[in-house]
């Protein structure tokens, strides 16, 4: 552990932890988003429910889930530590305010955006993850499709959660925070890894911007279309 202790003691080590866990969480978001997008196929949730069953039963996915939790905890703990510690480094504050003249507001607000995402995450896990993993088997109700396959109906759970307009608003706000968090975080992680190059950096920035808009947009569309009954 001695050789890795800098990850929790030095300023550069701490930000490496933020970047590595951040990229891991981005990879998770991509998988999550692809599965959610299956809801939009509008096939009564069959493809989505099949994918959800695969995710719940595949041992590789279940092990990855534990790693994902470790990643989340490290990212949250280290992020909160850095936010509060960095704030203490300037005890006397400035009176003059440069506004957005030298940096983007969301780059300066990662701790705040992250906290909103954390609050959303707790609610989100309670809505779906806890229900699908820990409740008694078949608590969600089962559905049998035309091909004879019977499985838990997570799609129905989504439809019932999103009948509540407050839940829809919270989910959309969570996606907004996620979009701005990613807009800084995606390219910032590469800068932390030491990737800053006149040809590659603009590509990373464009891919990052596209990811930050498309992924949260797909996430945000689902509660809205389910609430208004466009997808049933």
């Amino acid at each position: 552990m001695g050789v890795l202790s800098f990850l929790f003691s030095s300023s550069l080590g701490r930000k490496l932890v933020m970047a590595v866990t951040g990229i891991a969480l981005i990879a998770f978001l991509l998988v999550h988003c692809l599965i959610n997008a299956m809801v939009l196929l509008n096939d009564g949730g069959q493809t989505f429910n099949e994918a959800a069953r695969f995710m719940a039963e595949n041992p590789f996915i279940r092990i990855s889930e534990i790693l994902l939790f470790v990643g989340f905890l490290l990212h949250i703990a280290q992020g909160l530590y850095l936010t509060f510690d960095n704030r203490k480094r300037r005890a006397a504050k400035y009176t003059g305010n440069p506004g957005n003249a030298n940096s983007k507001w969301y780059s300066r607000s990662m701790g705040f955006l992250g906290t909103i995402i954390l609050i959303f995450l707790v609610l989100h896990l309670k809505h779906f993850w806890v229900v699908s993993r820990f409740h008694a088997p078949h608590a969600l109700g089962e559905i049998t499709y035309a091909n004879g396959d019977t499985m838990e109906n997570l799609f129905l759970e989504m439809a019932s959660v999103f009948t509540n307009p407050i839940a829809v608003v919270i989910y959309v706000l969570g996606c907004f925070s996620l979009a701005y968090h990613l807009l800084h975080g995606f390219s910032s992680a590469f800068q932390t890894f030491g990737v800053n190059h006149k040809s590659y950096t603009p590509i990373i920035a464009s891919v990052g911007a596209a990811f930050s808009i498309i992924v949260p947009l797909i996430f945000a569309i689902i509660p809205v279309v389910m609430h208004f009954g466009i997808i049933k």
Partner: peptide, 18 residues
């Protein structure tokens, strides 16, 4: 140099670019 920078009480970089 990084150890000395941390010991002097400077904060950590969050890549804002300011």
């Amino acid at each position: 140099m990084v150890n000395q920078m941390d010991a002097e009480g400077f904060g950590a970089c969050t890549n804002t670019g300011a």
